[in-house]
Design a protein around this nucleic acid. Structure first.
Lengths: 224, 224
DNA sequence: TTTTAATGATAGCAATACTATTATATTAAA
DNA sequence: TTTAATATAATAGTATTGCTATCATTAAAA
């Protein structure tokens, strides 16, 4: 199945909504491809423009700079995970079951039943694992936070935290556990691939399944 | 008390050992000050050179580029934490007690009895909290890892993991928990300061004490 | 005292991150 | 259908960054 998904992302992220035009969608689509391929540091608007047969100036009409483009993508990703969790927890009542679905969504960031037209979610997930934290580790945090550019991350955290609380109302740090679950999932996937000494996941295949198992092991100890 | 500390950092981090000359030490000292003040992104060798009345070219004789300078600082930090843990666990036999010292060292990154001459450890800690992960989230990870540029992080993780295992030999993921303890400590301090919705730590003062308490709470649930 | 090593001074170059201007399509409103 | 508005392309240009090269000067070692 394929659905047309359009998230309402904070307007401060862009100058012109890229979801509303062909060029805009091409910018999103190929920035995902390109950042995935060469990394955020060596990615720039000139290269992107060449790739999509457009110009630097045209891209600047959509995004103020490449940092905000990354932040846009990461916000899209956060919204995507929220959507995934909602989608997969429909009709699920048991809180423990819900939490397992959260973990699954964070680790796999995809479902077989759901596809997106112009964003390669798999590659976006890898970008988030690789470069994600750079989007909110910047001197501009306070300013960007004050205009709502991290709202989706907060929403995601709140959503997970409330599930954690319904699994165990006594647990003292639901928000911390929620954000840590997200960060830990990304980190451990990164470590498994690049710095295996920093993790206990050593398989080259089925890493996601192993990380999923591990996170559930942690959650079990923490919440029971 | 003040001790002259010289860590043996991997020679691949620098061109000329900055610990061995006045200029070298000034580079280290003022890069800490400057990155702390303006952030890593806007920091560059030209500005640093102006600050220490030297030249760009001279700094390039010590470090290939600013990324490797950051990685040098972060490696120094990792070694510092290892040193701190060793220092503070001398004569401590109880594993649980040791683990508490680990947490304390990670969160505070300092002791009153110990000072370093030319590095402001407090500011370095803040740099690590703010920019630390950028040092190992780069397209060059594999290459840099293969020549040992992340060795200190691995050593630190191994050290903590072994303490975790002696607290509870049944615990399945000691390395993961070790690296996550480090990452979580930094993350939660960052969130408490800049994105408080992502954590349960809300105090502006005594954040460290709160984070310490929180990490011990987590560890307690995980290992008992 | 001569040689070597470290630093400083200066210059320059290619790439990056933008901005500005004008031209040309495309679309929408009158 | 014409006109007006809007989106994109083409081109140019500027300030900054990241880095290299060269040569002069100073300080330290042999």
């Amino acid at each position: 199945m394929s659905v047309k998904i359009k998230f309402d992302l904070n307007a401060g992220l862009y100058i012109k909504d890229p979801q509303d035009s062909i060029l805009g969608r091409k910018i999103i689509q190929f920035s995902v491809e390109m950042i995935h391929a060469i990394g955020f540091e060596s990615f720039n608007f000139k290269k992107l423009a060449a790739e999509i047969n457009s110009t630097e100036a045209s891209i600047y009409r959509y995004f103020e700079n490449k940092h905000l483009l990354l932040l846009y993508l990461v916000n899209w990703y956060w919204e995507w995970i929220i959507y995934l969790i909602q989608f997969n927890t429909v009709n699920v009542v048991d809180a423990k079951e819900k939490l397992k679905i959260v973990v699954h969504s964070l680790v796999f960031a995809t479902t077989e039943n759901l596809m997106v037209e112009f964003i390669n979610v798999n590659k976006l997930h890898k970008i988030v694992v690789f470069e994600g934290t750079k989007a909110y580790h910047t001197v501009e945090v306070d300013k960007e936070n004050s205009i709502g550019l991290f709202k989706s991350y907060k929403d995601l955290t709140a959503m997970i935290a409330s599930i954690i609380t319904s699994v165990n109302p006594e647990f003292k740090y639901p928000s911390t556990l929620a954000s840590n679950l997200y960060e830990m999932s990304n980190n451990q996937l990164y470590f498994a691939n690049y710095l295996p000494k920093l993790t206990d996941i050593h398989l080259k295949t089925n890493q996601e399944t192993e990380v999923e198992k591990m996170l559930n092991y942690f959650l079990n100890k923490l919440l029971n």
